[in-house]
C-alpha cells in the first residue's frame, strides 16, 4: 500500500503530517515512512531511530578518457543539456547538468566517454519500534533530485512487502520531482492550508494528480484560519476531505523544536485516526 503525501507549495505541513501519521499508525501496525524531499529531508528531525542500513547512491555520467579522444566534438553536439563541453585541448563533463541519456557515450566513435557512477547522495534506513524510516539526502551542490528519488523508491519496494503501509513524504511543487515521487503510488494525500495561497496551490496539485490518474484526498492544515474555499471546493468536486488539523500556535511551537504533535494535542490524534481509518478501508478495497 503506497501513499504519497504531497502539497502544491512548501511549508503547508507536509512533513508534520507525514511524521505524525507514521508515528500514530506505528502504535498499531508496521509502517514505512520514506522522505523523498531529498533536497531538504526534514522528517529525520522528528523521528530518531536506530540506523540499521546506510548506502551511497550513484548516478551514471560520462567520464572523459583523454588517450582515446580525438576532440571531434560530437559529444558536445549531441548533448542537449550543455553537460559536455569541448575546450581547446579537453572535454569537460558537468555531472549536475547530465541527464544520463547515454547519447554522448554511446555515439562517441572512439569510446572515449564511458559511463561511470558518480555519487549523488546517501540513503539511510532507521528503525524505531514499528516505524521503518528511510531518507535520502542529496549531496550539497547536487541539483538533480529525480534519479535519487527513483532509487530511494526502488529500495523501499525491494525491502518491504506489498501490504505494508508506506508513506512517501514527497517534494513540494508540481514539477518533475513530485511526479517522480507519486508516479507509482496507490493514493495521494494532498495537504493544504485554508488560505488563498493554499487554495490556489492545491488546485494546481489536484490538476497534477488528476493528470496522473491517481486517487487522492485532501487534508486541511491550520483549519479555522482563513476561509472556507478549500472546504467548499472539495465538497463541490466530490473530493474526499480526510482530516482537518486545527490552527494552533502550540502546534507551530512543537514543530519549531522538532517534536511530535499528536501525543500532546488530542484533536490532532483524532484527525490522524480518520486518515488511518481511510487508509485501512482503501487497503481492504485494494485486496478485492
Amino acid at each position: 500500500m503506497k501513499i504519497a503525501i504531497a502539497s502544491g507549495k512548501g511549508g503547508t505541513g507536509k512533513t508534520t503530517l507525514s511524521v505524525n501519521l507514521a508515528a500514530f499508525i506505528s502504535e498499531n501496525d508496521k509502517v514505512v515512512l520514506c522522505d523523498l524531499d531529498v533536497e531538504e529531508p526534514n522528517s529525520g528531525l522528528f523521528i530518531k531511530g536506530e540506523l540499521i542500513h546506510e548506502e551511497e547512491k550513484f548516478k551514471m555520467v560520462p567520464k572523459w578518457v583523454p588517450d582515446k579522444c580525438t576532440l571531434c566534438g560530437l559529444c558536445q553536439e549531441v548533448c542537449n543539456f550543455n553537460a559536455v563541453i569541448k575546450l581547446e585541448k579537453q572535454i569537460m563533463v558537468f555531472p549536475d547538468l547530465c541527464h544520463t541519456c547515454y547519447a554522448c557515450s554511446e555515439l562517441c566513435p572512439e569510446e572515449a566517454l564511458p559511463m561511470v557512477p558518480v555519487k549523488m547522495g546517501e540513503l539511510k534506513h532507521f528503525q524505531l519500534n514499528n516505524i521503518s524510516f528511510i531518507e535520502s539526502h542529496l549531496d550539497v551542490g547536487r541539483e538533480q533530485a529525480v534519479p535519487l528519488i527513483s532509487q530511494t523508491i526502488e529500495y523501499v519496494e525491494a525491502n518491504f512487502d506489498k501490504d505494508t503501509i508506506k508513506l512517501y513524504d514527497s517534494p513540494p511543487g508540481t514539477s518533475c520531482p513530485v511526479i517522480e515521487a507519486t508516479k507509482e503510488v496507490d493514493f495521494v494525500i494532498l495537504i493544504t492550508e485554508p488560505t488563498p495561497f493554499g487554495f490556489h496551490d492545491v488546485k494546481l496539485a489536484i490538476e497534477t494528480v488528476k493528470k496522473m490518474h491517481k486517487k487522492f484526498g485532501v487534508v486541511i492544515n491550520r483549519y479555522g484560519i482563513g476561509n472556507d474555499d478549500v472546504l467548499k471546493y472539495c465538497k463541490d468536486n466530490d473530493i474526499p476531505l480526510l482530516a482537518k488539523i486545527p490552527n494552533d500556535r502550540f502546534i507551530a511551537e512543537l514543530y519549531s523544536s522538532g517534536e511530535l504533535i499528536y501525543t500532546k494535542v488530542p484533536e490532532v490524534k483524532k484527525q490522524l485516526k480518520n486518515i488511518y481509518d481511510y487508509i485501512l478501508k482503501l487497503k481492504e478495497n485494494n485486496k478485492v
Binding site: 543539456f81 541527464h99 541519456c101 547519447a103 493528470k211
Partner: peptide, 21 residues
C-alpha cells in the same frame, strides 16, 4: 511526454528521420 527528458538521442539515431524534437 511525462517521461521524455528531451535528450534527443532517439531523434538523432532514427534511421528513418521520423522523430523530431
Amino acid at each position: 511526454s511525462l517521461n521524455c527528458e528531451g535528450c534527443g538521442y532517439c531523434a538523432r539515431i532514427c534511421p528513418a528521420n521520423a522523430i523530431t524534437m
